[in-house]
């Protein structure tokens, strides 16, 4: 969230009302989706953990999609980070919360930062499927390293790397490629007309 301020002074980026409302609305919608996925995730990840623990990383991709989608739609510095972080925050505020407590804020922070870094590295100029996949993968990488230090502290290094690999693949495919096509579908549904992502999908009638 704070990156939105700094970016405004450094890059002279102006956030229109529709930008802010879209970021926050996406955050609430994805917060709900995250919360729902959290309830579904537990039994599935249990299965994964009891078969081959690092493979639970494959199930973690959906958590990263908010940042990728926010970045692809709004295309301004801070958008990816804010969308992901706020979505994570929303998922903890829903009654019944999440089992991970404050750690969700930390995850939202690292996941949002991972996606944001990719968009920053290409100066917010390209928003293709490769960039989206990279954003998903880096978000997964950042989050994995955080989880090594918080959840999986005592795993042997090889397993930690395997977890990171699974997570990065899941992030690239589900959050990255999935997020890219989600944005495309939203644009075709006509709800992104206020954004370049929407205008690129329009055919005149």
């Amino acid at each position: 969230m704070s990156s939105a301020t700094t970016s405004r002074t450094r890059f002279h980026v102006h956030y229109r009302t529709i930008d802010l409302v879209t970021i926050t609305t996406l955050a609430v919608a994805f917060g709900v989706i995250f919360w729902g996925w959290g309830k579904l995730y537990e039994p599935l990840s249990g299965l994964a953990v009891f078969s081959y623990p690092p493979s639970s990383g494959l199930l973690a991709g959906p958590w990263l999609i908010a940042g990728v989608v926010g970045g692809l739609i709004v295309r301004k510095p801070g958008a990816a980070f804010a969308t992901e972080f706020l979505a994570a925050a929303v998922s903890t505020f829903i009654a019944g919360g999440t089992q991970w407590g404050f750690s969700v804020f930390a995850s939202g922070f690292w996941q949002g930062l991972g996606a944001e870094v990719i968009f920053l590295l290409i100066f917010y100029r390209r928003f293709g499927v490769v960039v989206a996949a990279a954003a998903g993968a880096l978000a997964a990488t950042f989050e994995s390293v955080y989880e090594w230090n918080s959840y999986w502290t005592d795993w042997d290094m090889g397993y930690k790397l395997a977890y990171l690999g699974f997570f990065a693949v899941s992030g690239a495919v589900i959050a990255g490629v999935g997020g890219f096509y989600l944005v495309k579908a939203l644009a075709k549904a006509g709800v992104l007309d206020a954004f370049p992502a929407g205008r690129e999908q329009v055919t005149e009638v």
């Binding site: 006509g190 007309d193 329009v202 005149e204 009638v205």
Partner: peptide, 10 residues
Amino acid sequence: GFTWRPLGRR
């Protein structure tokens, strides 16, 4: 002289 052409309309 108010003229408006919405996105997606010719």
